[in-house]
Simulated scan of single mutants.
Amino acid sequence: MKIIKYVIACLVTLMSTSLWASQLTPEQESAKTRGLTLFNQHKAISAEPFLTIAAEAGDREAQFYLGKAIQFNKRYMTAEARKWYTAAAEQGDMYSMYQLAYNGNDLCHAMGNCPRGTRTAREWKDLLINTATPLTEQGDGEAMYMMYLVTGDLDWLKKQAKPGFPFKPYWLAIRYDNDECFIFPPWQRSDRIKELYKEAAEGGYPVAMYYYADLLQKSGDLENARNWVVKSAALGYESTFLEYAYGLSDPSNKWGFQVDYVKSYGLMSLLLELNGGGNVLSFVNEELPRIAKNLTPEQIEEAKKIGAEWKATHPPLSFFPQKLGF
């Protein structure tokens, strides 16, 4: 649907037409899923070959993330990263347009040796605006978020949008939480922030669930706070999953979880796969022996089964990195 909307926008503005992605085979789809999982676990190097399979097949999401992985691994916008961003942008991917507009390199234009048809950063920005504008008029929250990034106008985040993009209210809550904008009357700031986190949490964004749960816990609503922690953990968000797994082995945990050392050990063990970023691995390696002291060998085996069952029935663990951040 977004590709169709992109084509319409381009025809209206007399700009380029989009390229159509081919249908992925089961093998290509599996490679894409594996690549995205690895990328979201901060394993960008390992993700590249899997994302390449789907990107070469024409999948625009894989093309964007491949460009992002290459850019991250090389620490700058390489020609290869730009190639994949361009492929995705030509199919209507607004995030790729943004990368090319704000993180691209116009050196070839300055030197006059760009490949024929290469757009300038300004042209990519214009295409992004022309793509997002008609979508905002239809209530598309993602397009409103992109317009906020382009213009810096916070009103884009405040506009009413159709459900489906919970990152928008989450990001507005972050802006308020960081005192980056004014709320009138000012004494309603905390209530407004809580409302936005709740909206984003109810929209299905696991990171917002964690923030909302924290506010509920601080207000003394432990039952609802626990429910949101479990919901977020079930979706694989590393921070809430860690809180949940650890809380099950801490009698004084702030969430009020009942101690279950067996389940705690089983879930905590799953975090060992997050060895691509952060301090998760060192923390888990310290905590597992502590939890194991409360278990018999038979209980440890039971814990391993609990972990295996969870992994088989839930989404993979993820840091949920922002699409335009690393």
Rank of each mutant, 00 (worst) to 15 (best):
T296I: 00
Y85T: 09
C108H: 02
E238D: 12
A312K: 04
T240K: 01
K254E: 15
K168T: 10
N40D: 07
G112S: 01
A81C: 11
Y246M: 14
P186G: 10
D177T: 13
Y211G: 03
A225Y: 02
A143F: 03
N73P: 00
Y244D: 01
P297Q: 07
V229I: 15
N224V: 00
G276W: 09
P115Q: 01
A234T: 10
A44N: 14
R116K: 09
Y265S: 05
W156V: 01
A225Q: 03
G152T: 07
M147R: 07
Y210D: 13
T37H: 10
I174F: 02
N285S: 06
F165Q: 04
L271S: 08
N73V: 13
A233D: 04
S249G: 15
P49H: 09
Q322F: 12
K158N: 09
Q99W: 08
H42R: 15
E301K: 15
G247Y: 05
A233Y: 02
L127T: 14
S96Y: 09
L66V: 06
Y85D: 11
W20D: 07
Y212E: 02
S249P: 11
Y148V: 01
Q217D: 02
K159L: 14
R290N: 13
R60Q: 08
W310N: 06
A121V: 00
G104V: 01
Y197P: 05
L270A: 02
W156H: 06
A62R: 05
A21R: 14
E202G: 03
R116D: 09
R60G: 00
L11A: 04
M77D: 12
D214M: 11
G266W: 05
P186I: 11
Q23W: 02
T17R: 14
A87M: 15
E202M: 12
A173E: 11
N224M: 03
S264F: 05
Y212M: 01
D191G: 06
Q322H: 12
K74V: 11
N253Q: 06
W171I: 11
Y244H: 12
A132F: 04
L19R: 10
T151E: 08
E199Y: 04
E90R: 15
N40A: 05
A161E: 14
L157K: 00
T136Q: 02
Q160N: 14
S46C: 00
N285D: 06
K159D: 05
G278P: 00
G277T: 07
D250A: 08
L324C: 04
L36K: 09
E48C: 12
K74W: 09
P115L: 03
Y102P: 13
A89P: 10
S219K: 15
E273K: 12
A308F: 01
K74C: 07
A79G: 13
